[in-house]
Design a protein around this nucleic acid. Sequence first.
DNA 1: TTTAATGCAAAGTGTTTGCACTATA
DNA 2: TATAGTGCAAACACTTTGCATTAAA
Lengths: 166, 166
Amino acid sequence: MSGKGVDDVEKINDYKNEDFLLIKDVIEDNGYKMTTQRREVLMQFIRNKEEHLNVEKIYDIVKPKGIGVSTVYRSINIFVDLGILKEFRVDNTNYYELKMYAKKPLHIHFKCEKCRKIKDITDKEVIFKYLRINNLLEKEYNTEINDVDIMFHGLCSNCIDKNNIN
Amino acid sequence: MSGKGVDDVEKINDYKNEDFLLIKDVIEDNGYKMTTQRREVLMQFIRNKEEHLNVEKIYDIVKPKGIGVSTVYRSINIFVDLGILKEFRVDNTNYYELKMYAKKPLHIHFKCEKCRKIKDITDKEVIFKYLRINNLLEKEYNTEINDVDIMFHGLCSNCIDKNNIN
DNA sequence: TTTAATGCAAAGTGTTTGCACTATA
DNA sequence: TATAGTGCAAACACTTTGCATTAAA
């Protein structure tokens, strides 16, 4: 009896995903092979673009498919080295997110001290203002800024409102 | 024969240091004792205000005086909890610096990707611009921003110049 | 003098590595 | 089919903890 397993169907679908194909090229251009395991790890980020994933979360998802922790670590390390993933740290845990192909990325995170949620700030106006400061800095100090991480700590609007009620 | 040892003289001098006395109060207000070990760890930061210290560096200095690693870790953790120290991470290593008493601190670090040096950015104009963005964000999103960490990655002026020669 | 703090060693984390086996190009 | 990649377990590095001892208030 011929027939495709669940994994095969998944694989075929992944290979239709445009983001996956672009990143696959980056990986293979650098002499790495696109293995099932790397595809699985990578797809977690592509499927949940907005989420901030850590090794534990990814391993939980990927363990049932027989993928080991070391492979998760090795994949993520390669992806970070190749600039596919961006690492950032909150509360002693490393999180990762897709960096894609922006040349001068600006990563702004907001960590609420009460509900502990991490939010991305993507407000165009804010990002634009930050980029202007970068330019100022580069000129004034004769430096080259390739990457900026900004982490805000505070209270998000939800928790501020709850604070006022009490 | 009566006479003060080197350690006693150091202690007496530390107890004349204004910054030390202020921080000592914070520690004792929170029910902690000002022990010899905590004083030694703390003084590393006060004596090298501009430096970025990690546990290893502090332990190296303090080990000859018979202070253990666990005490270094325990001291630093308390200082971070009390808001005396600020923690930041570069290349998988935690660094610490004095936070002192600024209400809305803004920590801007520049990490050169070539020489790996970490520099503080203290330029008043830049900090002021950032604070204005904070205010904008707080109003626009109804949030409260208590703390901001900014990490630049790039090439410092030294390394840029060397790049151009080659 | 009481109780918090210390040093040591042991235990915990999170991450990397060596090696025999497996699967990709 | 050759070689890069994998899973596993062991090793590692960093950090925390239990406990008997010490020292600060």
